[in-house]
Design a protein around this nucleic acid. Structure first.
Lengths: 241, 241, 241, 241
DNA sequence: CATGAATGAGCTTTCATTCAT
DNA sequence: AATGAATGAAAGCTCATTCAT
């Protein structure tokens, strides 16, 4: 029988990718074994090595491609939107929609950064920073324009992204509230947070003070120690401990 | 020479607990080996079993005691505060301060729920729900009193807690912004979010519609399948896959 | 070079089985380590797991296959023999010959029942009962026919089988007495025992009295307690203690 | 409070001995851990070493003392009995009664010979031989006197002892048949076996032929390899493999 | 007499990975 | 493109044993 378009190899590669996402999401990267993965796609575990160099690279590929997808789609969505408030709402809506749609990928990208080796993690963190930049720039411009009450755009960026990303910890399709309902609720919280309520709580901050933050939240994630011997699985050491 | 005060056993137990927190924070529970842990406290790995039943129980003990501490301190902090807005601010301040102070414990409690066995996870999730209840009740009462514009207190609870918890992903002591600065910023975002900006964005929600959420975000964390045969190490399966 | 006929896998499996029998016979199941076994067949210990699920199953497979072999050969040997005395002699001869030929298997099947987990032990005990049934039925029919003086066929069955099985505690091929010599001697003891000498010793037994025996000698072997928690290696508890 | 007569130490020693018998009977020597044993008598496992040199010696002490008891009681029972048939019956009755009464000790002495180190096993086997000698001499004298039809007293000895010993594989007190009932049945089998039925089955044996047996069944039990290094638990190698 | 902390060796089992076929 | 046999390392855990107190 003739090969179907997209060779078996291509199809197997795709199956492995999908099964990998599923299993890492379910069990975690460390806890997923390649035997499991191979069984999921109907192969022997040794055969997987036709499709990736090693387990670490499978994870890296999944996360990197996810980040590329996330960034390009976000940039496309915000492309024509100039007004800061409109951009903020568009960002929030995009982020939420994306996170409700591709929960497994998002979950992995957030949880398994610690399982990436140094170099790979650096790549992903750079992508993350670029993505965060979309929001940070918007907040900064809105603040300059006087429409947002945001004195620390970086902090606000982290806060807002944490809030929005949190949705994939509990959201399930088919619930009482539709995706659009939820987008409405979350956007309300975000917009309310950055417009005009702030003075009610906080005293003016000393802007000239030394920053209390790392250059990015990403820097907080544990860093793998340099691989040393043999085939040993790379272990990670956290910067912050 | 006589035994030093606070027998070796007690001190070793404490050292193991602390090293455990440190290593799980750095490497993750799955990636931390008991040999590593033993080396960290200057023991043979087998000797650790004087101090815990098994690796899983070490994790559970750490997380459970952390949650107990978190809850009791939170309840103490909110004890006399009746006014919804004051309670909200007190909760935010407590949560942030706690998370900036005990980052490793908090990080572990959030990240390693997936590594807990069924029963243990259920215990922790129940504690989490109780903690979330402190905020949810406050939001609900504030909404009833007309001081908060919150139509979905549960969703708002998840959103706010996600935002506040996010601080331990990037905060480092000694930065430009003091803990109190950051508490000011975050509290501003939270209070702004729940007071009066919402109508600007979202259409009224159909309150009677079917819920789109699990009973708790906790339910999203992967659930271990029931142990079936033999001595096999328990693996986890995610509810959502 | 092409794979040798009978793939390596098949040959390795057979080598493992044989080495397993040899080492369990020599050291006992508990005392045999899988490292020993692997070394015996020239493998790493982990590689054994291509060939059995775990150590316990290796033992079970060995014992179960032995019992199947024993039963089927015994049934074949007795197939056409109707006369009770002839059947008794045929049984004794078969049992002795088998036990002198496959001493290691027999020894293991008798000694290591205690090392089997509950379910496995139940299977083996059922097989043992079936085998014993061959003798018991013969004794019973012989007693009914008046050719045997056997008032308690079950007790006599246990006694005779114990006597015959005992041969594998001391027999070695190449000794002064041939297998056929020994069969002659043992058969004489057995036949003499069940034909007509009994009244010389014992007073008539109250047949209606309550039995003083377990349903089978097998039931005397220690029974593993039901596995309860975690991954703990199953220990055994004796029924009679 | 004053010490009771028989110091605590003496009582503890006795408790350890009894618990040891119980646990070795239940689990087997290899499978019994000293932690279990210590727990059974309410001690820490390290404290056991006040009462024995090591685990191996505990086993040896138990078995040796059992054998001494067995032999001295048997010799006492047979002391005044001269007539071969009476001696045979007395031996059988004694052996059965003893085995029904002290099943655990007997079981251990039979099953755990393989777990004894070389030297210890040699001691026990010598005792066993002496015990067997009581029966063998009786058979020999009976044969010489023409009252027994036994051409191979050694073989008959092994056969008879195996048969009688087998009772402790299935007997339980409180069953339908009393100890005396069972003694009657077994004695009938034994006496019948050695009196006059033999010619019915076997052709005369060539007495001058080379023996097909080891000097004692005991020699069949595995022999421990010489202890080699450090504190390593001694492993055993079977002579017959 | 007994504890309790610790050792060091060894166990069964799992894993990522390799490679001849 | 895939198999299946095997490796070598490491994991969690248990054990008999020691010894200062």
């Amino acid at each position: 029988m003739a090969r179907t378009i997209g060779s078996n190899g291509t199809r197997t590669a795709e199956a492995i990718r999908q099964a990998g996402v599923k299993l890492i999401y379910k069990h975690g990267y460390e806890a997923m074994s390649l035997r499991q993965l191979a069984a999921e796609v109907g192969l022997q575990s040794g055969s997987l090595y036709k499709y990736f160099e090693n387990k670490q690279n499978l994870l890296f590929d999944i996360v990197r491609e996810h980040m590329e997808d996330l960034i390009s789609k976000a940039e496309a969505d915000l492309a024509g939107v100039a007004d800061p408030l409109a951009r903020l709402k568009a960002f929030a809506a995009f982020h939420l929609r994306y996170h409700m749609t591709r929960m497994a990928h998002v979950f992995i990208a957030n949880m398994e950064i610690r399982s990436l080796e140094d170099e790979h993690r650096a790549t992903i963190i750079a992508q993350r920073r670029r993505y965060e930049g979309l929001l940070e720039d918007t907040l900064r411009r809105g603040a300059e324009a006087g429409v947002f009450e945001v004195r620390e755009p970086k902090v606000a960026t982290y806060a807002i992204i944490s809030m929005l990303t949190g949705i994939c910890m509990w959201y399930r399709p088919g619930g009482r509230l539709s995706q659009e309902d939820l987008i409405g609720i979350y956007t309300g919280l975000v917009v309310g947070g950055v417009t005009g309520a702030e003075e009610a709580v906080a005293a003016p901050l000393p802007l000239e003070a030394k920053a209390s933050m790392a250059t990015s939240p990403a820097a907080r994630t544990p860093k793998a120690k340099t691989k040393t011997t043999g085939k040993a699985t790379a272990k990670r050491t956290a910067a912050g401990a």
